[in-house]
Design a protein around this nucleic acid. Structure first.
Length: 260
DNA sequence: ATGGCGTACACCGTACGA
């Protein structure tokens, strides 16, 4: 079972890339983030034509997440389900869970945080705190959990092209890394890192400053799995190729393969 | 020190991203 995640930075702008990547890799599951469309505008027919079912939690202009899968997505659940739908943390479509072939898959687009100390930074930390509460409840379902998405945190200095310059900055700050570690402590393992100890492997590069060519990136997109599933992870990688295609997303797909 | 690029919306600039 191959599970992938990709922040596409607008599904409208990126549909040709998503189609091309699905055709080339044929993952069993692809989690998408930053759709930037409402559910009605999601290109469901085009993706179903490729053999993928779609669970969608869309939003106009900002955010929006989806789970594409070859098997049926069961028990789809948007948002932080332990909080009321009208809770401020559920106002933005950043989370969607569905069970696919016995694995509880979660597509997550965690807040960017803008700058350390800003209101958006406080919102980001609050979201991480509630994500932990949410996942603790999901774990009690007893299913294997695969948490995928744009976490907007580089977990370690080796995930950053210039760790000294980024130390303490948003995406790399101590409170963010601590919040991420608290989620991980529920029992998750980083599938990519399990297979790749090396530094300098990134999932996001700024559109500006020729960042991709100069290898100025961060690893902020992740596939995490709970222990029994992670132990069955046979391979994982970041596919930087689509980042070099015409009009790319600034993020690359990350995937992990499991022997089930 | 700043902005650099891209997307969306809607109006031809502004918000937002990371």
């Amino acid at each position: 079972m191959k599970i992938a995640t990709w922040n596409v930075n607008s599904i409208r702008a990126r549909l040709p890339h998503v189609v091309r990547w699905l055709e080339g890799h044929r993952p069993d599951v692809l989690c998408l983030q930053e759709l930037k469309v409402q559910d009605e505008e999601f290109p469901r027919a085009e993706l179903e034509a490729l053999g993928y079912r779609c669970a969608v939690a869309g939003q106009k202009t900002y955010n929006g997440v989806a789970i594409l899968c070859r098997d049926e997505p069961r028990d789809p659940s948007p948002g932080l389900a332990h909080l009321p739908p009208d809770h401020p943390l559920n106002g933005q479509k950043r989370l969607l869970a569905a069970t696919v072939t016995g694995v509880r898959v979660i597509s997550a687009y965690l807040p960017n945080g803008e700058a350390v100390g800003s209101d958006k930074f406080a919102f980001k930390l609050a979201f991480f705190r509630e994500l932990r509460e949410y996942l603790a409840r999901e774990l009690s379902r007893g299913e294997a959990l695969c948490l995928c998405g744009d976490f907007n945190v580089a977990p370690e200095p080796i995930d950053v092209y210039d760790p000294a310059a980024w130390e303490g900055q948003v995406l790399c700050s101590e409170p963010e890394r601590a919040a991420l570690a608290a989620v991980r402590a529920l029992g998750f393992d980083d599938c990519f890192r399990r297979h790749h100890p090396e530094a300098g492997r990134y999932s996001w590069w700024d559109y500006r400053m020729k960042a991709l060519q100069r290898k100025l990136g961060l690893r902020i997109d992740h596939v995490w799995a709970t222990a029994p599933l992670a132990e069955r992870c046979t391979a994982s990688d970041i596919d930087a190729e689509p980042r070099r295609w015409e009009r790319p997303s600034d993020h690359a797909p990350v995937w992990a393969e499991f022997s089930l």
